[in-house]
């Protein structure tokens, strides 16, 4: 009774024009509640218990999993194929091939190749690069100007 009064008072505050429901407005088919317990017992016994699973794979969701699996498969095999990561092949096999090719070339041919290849014949040390840079810097300056500049500079001893 207490809860009924509490709800009634609450309703008076919120919707004064609305009384607490006494009779159901909506109707139920005749004899529904009398027959329901027996019907439910039959249905409950006939319905197999659903086993609890981590997730249920419903048919409409299955196609997404299949599509994802196929995509992942294609990506994996493409990477495997193009990267050529088969054990014993790849980088190791290239080194092996290069060694065999070089062993097959006579020593004189290698010597001639080194002598005539600019990358091997020219000296490209840092010192030589600096000398070239200084020459480039002073090439447009007249000799008299350089001499005058040298005369004006105070003479200091090198450490």
């Amino acid at each position: 009774m207490e809860i009924k009064e509490e709800i009634q008072n609450e309703l008076k505050r919120l919707i004064p024009e609305l009384p607490l429901q006494q009779q159901p407005t909506i109707q139920v088919p005749n004899g529904y509640f009398e027959q329901l317990p027996a019907q439910l017992l039959v249905i409950a016994k006939a319905t197999p218990e659903k086993r609890a699973t981590l997730f249920q794979l419903q048919p409409h969701k299955l196609k997404f999993f299949v599509a994802a699996a196929v995509t992942i498969g294609i990506l994996f095999f493409s990477f495997y194929y193009f990267a050529d990561l088969t054990p014993g092949e790849g980088v190791d096999s290239i080194n092996q091939w290069a060694k065999q090719e070089i062993n097959g070339v006579p020593a004189e041919h290698i010597s001639v190749y080194i002598d005539h290849t600019p990358a091997f014949s020219q000296k490209t040390t840092a010192e030589e690069m600096e000398n070239k840079d200084v020459a480039l810097l002073v090439q447009d300056i007249r000799q008299e100007e350089i001499q005058r500049l040298l005369n004006d500079l105070p003479i200091t001893e090198m450490p």
Partner: peptide
């Protein structure tokens, strides 16, 4: 459905 779940 409710009472079947209760039964199970």
């Amino acid at each position: 459905n409710t009472f079947v779940r209760i039964w199970n």
